[in-house]
Design a binder for these strands. Structure first.
Lengths: 206, 206
DNA sequence: CTAGACTTCAAACGATTGTTTGAAACGCGA
DNA sequence: TCGCGTTTCAAACAATCGTTTGAAGTCTAG
């Protein structure tokens, strides 16, 4: 387990897999395409990850560990300072995803991979995500319940379900809106986040 | 081209393909799985549709022709009677999808297939959908512009993009909300449509 | 410098992929 | 009943799939 060597091969596989999963889906991207893009040997995937399914899980783990941490950290900060409102809770959820998609080159494509996970009815993948990161959504649901006290539980869950859909879809860039020529990636993403918070807050509050 | 024979084999392939595409994706569902589920010979797909890609397009065409017609019909009726408002235009868009998902057994799974199409960056599939059904979205965008005159074009497009995401995601049943035990499929779907219109109208108007 | 663990490599495994083939079965007008 | 276009069928095609293998290469601790 040499740190440098392991980092290089493992990380390059994860990066190439992430990009190809976003573009062609989990079944549509083959390990040969992944290893070719990563410029590593085909057998390296099974050596480092054991199987394709494990590779898929690791692609999620690499990003979601950090993303979930930032989201909950933001939420805790709001609760501690008493600044929790509908808009700030939404911001606590959205901004880390925004930063991730701007941070590294692969960040924005990961949001597409994440959106694909929702479309997959693959039960083992859903179980993996629910078991490892379900508590994040639970904590946020509780926070939303606190800032939307007039909604009963059933009503709140319906609206959160719709809101998550809007956020997932938008952050994955599935829409038709294109970045204008003079506009930077950062400016485009920040505008999207602003619209998302505005739209979703209105829908949740209505 | 005997009507009865053609109907039977073709239609059974389309039904089985629709279900398996919804469950496993376009790349994840093989023609052998499709033909086995449809109880037809493997070669029947290439005989009746030419290729897997053509089969995928036909799965969309079968539902979208009718769906688009109903949507535009509803919209035209609103314009003719002067009843066009934000809620009624949304209803004109959503209700046909609701009816489709309740009408036939395969209707609800088709909405999942449609949502998968958004996740696919497959350019030929996107081109097929845009060329054949893009005018529906264009007509509705114009209608929304009329009932939301205070929004400038750029602002409207942002919000419609988000709204389409919310609708697509929700109608595909990607969320975590489950039908309650005593609740009928129809009641569940109608409640979802009601929440969707309410949420989206608020987001668009805000 | 050597021993030994770690990593990479080319090659091959059986299984499965979309597609094609040519013959068999079918259905219907003459 | 015959003949012919339409449809179905089992079988096979080359290509690709995820995975495994054992040897070659690389690295560091002793």
């Amino acid at each position: 387990m040499q740190p440098s060597a392991q980092f290089s091969t493992r990380q390059r596989i994860l990066g190439a897999a992430e990009a190809l999963f976003a573009e062609r889906g989990f079944a549509g991207a083959s390990l040969r395409q992944v290893t070719a893009a990563a410029k590593v040997n085909l057998a390296a995937v099974n050596y480092h990850f054991g199987s394709k399914d494990n590779l898929i899980e690791e692609v999620f783990r690499r990003r979601l560990d950090e993303l979930s941490h930032h989201r909950l950290e933001n939420l805790a900060k709001l609760e501690a300072t008493g600044n929790a409102s509908l808009e700030t809770v939404l911001d606590a959820f959205i901004t880390p995803a925004l930063e991730l998609s701007l941070d590294r080159k692969g960040g924005s494509v990961f949001m597409r991979v994440l959106a694909r996970a929702f479309a997959e009815h693959n039960s083992s993948l859903r179980r993996f995500l629910s078991e490892n990161y379900g508590y994040v959504l639970k904590d946020f649901a509780a926070a939303f319940a606190r800032v939307l006290p007039h909604l009963d539980k059933q009503e709140l869950y319906w609206r959160l379900d719709i809101a998550v859909g809007a956020l997932t879809y938008a952050m994955a860039d599935f829409g038709v809106i294109q970045r204008r020529s003079g506009e930077s990636e950062r400016a485009y993403r920040e505008q999207m986040a602003r619209h998302l918070i505005h739209f979703t807050a209105a829908g949740l509050r209505a």
